[in-house]
Simulated assay, not measured.
Amino acid sequence: MRRVVLLLSVILAFSSPAFADIYVVKRGDSLYKIAKKFRTTVARIKRLNGLRSNVIRPGQRLIVPGRRYKPVKSRETIRFLERKSELTAASSAIKAGSEIYPITSIVYEEGEKLADALSTPLNVPYDNWNLSILEDPEYKSALLKILASLFKDLKNTPYVFGGGNPKRGLDCSSFTMYVYRKLGINLPRTARAQFNVGVPVKKEELKVGDLVFFRTYARFPSHVGIYIGNGKFVHFSSMFHGLAISSLDDRYFKKRYIGAKRVLSEKLVKKILYAWDKK
């Protein structure tokens, strides 16, 4: 499963738009040879893959700078947008502390700033790991609506360290594991293990559904939440004794933030939205 999860995301390494490919390391390969093959630098490959050393092994999958593709709006995209043209925000909200935060209203605030929905390149020979699909307000809103419904089911579940039963109590990592399992994705049990899946995402490039990690009671990643946009994330926090929405800019979390991982690709988002649309 880990091999599959490692393929579920990619980030943009520079400000200009780019896509990436997955390269499987062969015997005799080195980072220098791979960088030369893809006309890039060793530093960039290490940055894309979160590598701290030059050591690689045969069979290892690396993200490498890929070819650019012209976005093509497929018939499937058009049909999806037509089905979602009447999509309205979910009315559900989640209590965090003493305030009520309507989850799905976030996307509409951002969507109003977009003059035109972006064409989504679905019909191309690669899976879009940078999730440009979520730059389309219709897709982003649909995913937020699904997440809101899952969060709502847990609003009265208490925080229990080590808990794994939604009826009795959850902690931060069992919460993220539960939500993603509902989406058809299996995550490891602990925040520390979840930090080892997916691909690193820059803070300024976070998308809805990304996992955000913090060091709280330990040196290793010990707290995790799900990003929902506008600098906010949903998590199970001992601070609020249950489901909460917090800001990455809060002093406590800003000081302890250590990074984010993406475990959703465009193909998976499309699959999830299609499955939930059939329910």
Rank of each mutant, 00 (worst) to 15 (best):
S9R: 08
E266F: 04
P125S: 06
F19D: 00
T190N: 03
G209D: 14
I100H: 04
K152V: 10
K271S: 15
A96Q: 12
S141I: 10
G162R: 11
L187I: 11
P121D: 06
A260V: 11
L187G: 03
V25D: 02
L51P: 00
Y257P: 06
E138C: 05
V10S: 05
K84Q: 14
P166G: 03
S246H: 15
L114P: 02
E109H: 14
S246V: 09
R52V: 14
R57I: 09
A193Q: 10
K113P: 04
V42H: 07
I245Y: 09
A117N: 05
L131T: 08
D136W: 05
E82L: 06
F214D: 05
R83V: 08
Y32P: 02
L48N: 02
K73L: 12
G169T: 07
V42F: 06
S132H: 07
K145G: 11
S238K: 12
R44T: 02
P200F: 07
R83I: 06
S85Q: 05
Q60R: 11
D116C: 11
V25Q: 01
I100N: 05
K182C: 02
I133V: 11
F195H: 11
R168E: 13
T157I: 07
D153R: 15
R44G: 06
I56A: 02
V179C: 04
K270P: 00
S74N: 14
I34Q: 02
A13P: 03
R262M: 04
F80A: 15
V5R: 13
G229Q: 03
N165A: 08
A90S: 15
F14H: 15
Y69N: 03
I245G: 11
Y159R: 14
N165P: 02
L81C: 08
R52E: 09
S92Y: 09
L31A: 04
F19R: 01
L81I: 02
P17T: 01
A35R: 08
R61S: 13
L8W: 07
R251H: 12
D116Y: 10
F253R: 09
P137H: 14
W129F: 08
A142Y: 09
S74T: 05
L150I: 07
F240S: 15
L206T: 14
A43E: 12
D127F: 00
K202Q: 08
L118G: 13
E76F: 10
A43F: 04
F19Y: 06
D21A: 05
L131H: 07
K278T: 14
A117C: 06
D21Q: 05
A142D: 03
F80R: 15
R27K: 15
K270C: 02
R181S: 15
E205L: 12
F233I: 05
I63G: 00
N49S: 13
Y32Q: 11
L183M: 07
M239D: 12
A193Y: 08
I22H: 13
P58W: 10
F38R: 02
A90L: 10
V10D: 07
R168S: 14
Y217L: 15
L8V: 13
L144V: 09
R251E: 11
L118I: 15
D21I: 02
A93W: 06
K278W: 04
P71N: 00
K84R: 13
M177S: 13
L144Y: 06
P158W: 03
T120A: 04
P125K: 01
L170C: 06
K203C: 08
